[in-house]
Design a protein around this nucleic acid. Structure first.
Ligand SMILES: [Zn+2]
Ligand SMILES: [Zn+2]
Ligand SMILES: [Zn+2]
Ligand SMILES: [Zn+2]
Lengths: 133, 133
DNA sequence: CTTGACCCTGTAGCGGCTCCAGGGTTCATG
DNA sequence: CATGAACCCTGGAGCCGCTACAGGGTCAAG
C-alpha cells in the first residue's frame, strides 16, 4: 500500500471534487484537516481520498451534508446496526418521490402553456394564465 | 370598483404571499413601493394585489424571479408579440424535464439501496455502495 | 531570473427567502 | 387613561452548498 501524500489539486482530480469545495468541506469539518508542508500546503493521504469519495457519492445521491455526516459516522462503527442508514435512505427516497410528483404536475401545467406562437401579448394564454386568479 | 387601500397583512392574505416576502419583493423592485400612511405603514391598492398574484402564480410554476420580471414587463405591453413568453415557457419546461430525469435516475439508485434491514454496518449495502469506487 | 502552475487565506456572492431584535402604532377593553 | 394584543416598521443575519474573487506565497522548469 502506497501512502505518499498528495496535494489538494491531486485530491481534487482523484475524487472529482473542486478544490474550493474541498477547502469548504474542511471548514465545515466534513473532511478532517490534513497535515501541512513547511510552506503550509495541505498534504492528503489515502484516508482522505476514500472519505472524500464517500462524500461525493453521497452528494451525487442527493444526500444533504448533514445526512452524509451521519452516514460517515455510521461507516466508522462497523459493529453497530445499520438501521440509521436505512432510515436516511427511506426518508430521502420519499423526498425524491415528492419532488418528482411536484415537478410532474408542473410539467403538465407548462405543457398546457407551451407553443402559444405568433400571438400578441393581449391574446397570449401564458400571460392570461398568470393574470387569471 | 372599490379601491380602498389595504395593509401588508391583508395583501399577504389576498395573495398567499408571506409578509416578509412581500417586503423582499419590494426591495428587489419586483413589486413597486406603495404609498405610506403618516405613520409609515404601507398601503397597497388593487394593482398591487393583481401584480403580486401574477408573481405568485409564476413562482408556483417554478419560474425564477428574473423570468417573472420578464413576464411582467411583457404583460405590460399587450400590443407586442408574445414570443418571449413562449421561449421562457419552453426553456423552463426543458429545465423541469431535465430535473425529472435526474431525480428519476436518483430514485432508481435509492430504491436499489432501500430496505437493508437488520444488518450491522459492516454488512450494510448502503454504506458499501458509498465506500465502493 | 523569470515564467507559469500551483497553493494559501479571507471574504463576498448566488437564489429566494425567512427570522430576529428592537422598536413604533392602533384599537378595543377595563 | 392605562394596558395589552395585534399589527407594522427597519436593518441585518442566517439558511444551503458551494463558487468566485483579491491579494498574496511557493516551487520547478527553462
Ligand atoms: Zn433527502
Ligand atoms: Zn402567447
Ligand atoms: Zn426554468
Ligand atoms: Zn444496511
Amino acid at each position: 500500500m502506497k501512502n505518499s501524500p498528495i496535494s489538494i489539486g491531486q485530491l481534487g482530480k482523484r475524487s472529482g471534487v473542486n478544490i474550493e469545495t474541498i477547502r469548504y468541506y474542511e471548514k465545515i469539518a466534513l473532511l478532517p484537516p490534513p497535515d501541512r508542508t513547511p510552506a503550509g500546503y495541505r498534504q492528503y493521504d489515502d484516508g482522505h481520498v476514500r472519505r472524500l469519495r464517500f462524500i461525493r457519492r453521497g452528494r451525487d445521491l442527493g444526500f444533504s451534508v448533514e445526512a452524509i455526516r451521519t452516514l460517515l459516522s455510521l461507516a466508522e462503527h462497523p459493529d453497530q446496526p445499520c438501521g440509521g442508514a436505512d432510515r436516511l435512505v427511506a426518508g430521502h427516497l420519499a423526498d425524491v418521490e415528492r419532488k418528482i410528483a411536484d415537478l410532474s404536475r408542473l410539467r403538465g401545467e407548462l405543457q398546457g402553456l407551451a407553443n402559444c406562437c405568433g400571438h400578441v401579448v393581449a391574446e397570449c394564454r401564458i400571460i392570461d394564465s398568470l393574470i387569471a386568479d
